[in-house]
């Protein structure tokens, strides 16, 4: 079963880091990713550009409206994601718990992916 791990960080935490600290976090992410690729759990995953680059689209009064910024203004913003393969929620939680952002004040939302059979 596939689970998506949505990584929410306080962007200012990383903005305030020195170059050396930032490199260390990057190194930890690379190690983590290599680990889950080798163990066969990794399906997909990428970091995202900061939320200042986000654009939101929604319908307002029957018209499609485009606005600057993320969907909701909160302290924690979606900063990246992984899709992992796991036998059950416990296994997925164990993997998500090792995502480096957990150690830097971030939060990980783990959600099962709804599998929809597609005609090929």
């Amino acid at each position: 079963m596939r689970y998506i791990c949505l990584i929410y960080d306080d962007e200012s935490t990383f903005a305030k880091m020195s170059e050396a600290e930032g490199a260390k976090v990057m190194q930890e992410y690379m190690q983590f990713t290599d680990g889950i690729v080798k163990s066969g759990h990794h399906r997909a995953g990428d970091p995202l550009q900061p939320s200042t680059t986000a654009t939101t689209i929604r319908t307002k009064n029957g018209k499609v409206v485009t606005t600057d910024g993320p969907f909701v203004e909160t302290k924690e913003q979606l900063g990246g994601f992984y899709i992992v393969e796991a036998a059950n929620l416990d296994e997925a939680l164990k993997i998500a718990g090792r995502i480096p952002s957990v150690r830097y004040g971030g939060a990980i939302e783990v959600r099962p992916i709804m599998e929809i059979p597609r005609a090929r």
Partner: peptide
């Protein structure tokens, strides 16, 4: 069911 929480008694520290 949907998040597939395993149906078991956990082991160790859990």
């Amino acid at each position: 069911r949907d998040a597939r929480i395993p149906y078991r008694v956990p082991e160790g520290a859990d």
